[in-house]
Design a protein around this nucleic acid. Structure first.
Lengths: 235, 235
DNA sequence: CATCTCCTTAAGCGAACGTTTGATATAATC
DNA sequence: GATTATATCAAACGTTCGCTTAAGGAGATG
């Protein structure tokens, strides 16, 4: 019984911090605000997490673990390439749907005055580099082409993340009094969307098509360019 | 002569703030740090900008003005669509190259505890919505398709921005002592790139191809889907 | 019961926060 | 030079910051 309550205080701190960090950013949120929202004494933050930065560390670790599991939890050897891309996108979308706030916190937590956090995020990136590169070579990209790799690196994640960032933004300013009522009516870029399963199936399909065609376009152009250069040499 | 010095103090504050906000985020930077970096007394910040948030307001205004000029400063009526897209991307890339730091500040400045900033950014978005929608309809997208519009909205900007964000990140942790030396060697995802004009011409071409093929893929799939539905109805 | 472990608290520390006030210096204008 | 406008400064305000310390409460164990 008491053990359950213990875990609850720690979890409440975590959840409160995720919510507040997502809305205001890490630096703008103080431990007193977190403690109040979590209904604990502020010393609990040092007790359970070693301090404010400890919360962020755990948010990032939890989030990155889920994220990398999502993008690597696809057996890319047994299914056609397009299905592989679709599966990854589907996992990505599911990841962001289930962890919207903590993902926003973790992915945006980049401040050069917290070396520990810079270091931590770099470690995660380096650790998964090989798996990510394997995926790229499988879809036909030239992993030795530095520009191409620079271009596609993290592209799917970026696109999905920006979608959820925008959705979060709209959902948290509409109806909260942050905007004047007269402006709220104008702020939606399109009719209000119902972000249900059907929407995200559709979204996944759209992104899969977009990405597959896009990447094919890059690979095709590169091939044509090389052919063109041979023609020039022969002339 | 004195007028020049006057402008210099105000400009120095602006530049110092841009630099610091880009590295640490708005909330983590204090006015004393800005004043020190700009070599002025801290009261100058209130005098010239009405306070800390005033600097951010001007960064956003300056940046958004340049940004929207960049993406709308293309006459979309007189040139083929692909060239139009290429021109927009070229403008976008130029914008981010010339305003990397202030762009990072402006685009990341989203905190729900500063209603003024939320409001300001919303105003800019609403103001340019019509022009942006016109562009989308020109490239063949169905502007009445809410999901499609949600998908492509801000997509080019997102992709270019994420490239510059990553570049900024790498350039500012390599060699600064933030990372252990042993990890620095591992952090580059590919051979060091020279971000010269040639690179960005190549990048622009790549993104143009990617985007055009991607968008065509979406429009084509939508057309096929509709045809398929007709077939089902006839059977 | 005594002891240990874990959890929780109140109070406090030194530092920093953004803004304000009043004074002074400098520049511009007549 | 006198006056006005602008720029700059030091000092101070009330508040907040993350972390620490010491104490006490609750539960587990022998």
């Amino acid at each position: 019984m008491a053990k359950d309550l213990k875990k609850e205080a720690k979890k409440r701190i975590f959840d409160a911090a995720v919510s507040l960090f997502a809305r205001k950013g890490y630096a703008a949120v103080g431990i007193r605000e977190i403690a109040k929202k979590a209904d604990v004494n502020i010393c609990m933050i040092n007790y359970y997490y070693g301090g404010k930065v400890g919360i962020l560390r755990e948010i990032i670790n939890e989030c990155y673990e889920k994220y990398y599991r999502a993008i690597t939890h696809v057996d890319i050897n047994d299914i056609p390439l397009e299905q592989c891309v679709r599966a990854i996108i589907k996992n990505l979308v599911a990841f962001f749907r289930e962890n919207t706030e903590s993902a926003l916190v973790a992915f945006n937590a980049l401040s050069f005055d917290i070396p520990e956090i810079v270091d931590l995020k770099t470690r995660w990136t380096v650790e998964y580099r090989e798996k990510v590169n394997k995926f790229f070579s499988q879809i036909g990209l030239d992993t030795s082409d530095a520009t191409q790799m620079n271009f596609v690196h993290g592209l799917l994640t970026t696109i999905v993340e920006s979608h959820f960032t925008r959705r979060f933004f709209y959902e948290h300013i509409i109806g909260t009094g942050t905007l004047a009522k007269s402006r709220e009516a104008n702020v939606l870029p399109e009719p209000a969307l119902d972000y249900d399963d059907a929407f995200y199936e559709n979204f996944t399909e759209m992104l899969t098509n977009f990405y597959m065609h896009g990447v094919t376009g890059i690979a095709t152009k590169k091939h044509e360019k090389m052919s063109g250069e041979q023609v020039c040499i022969e002339k």
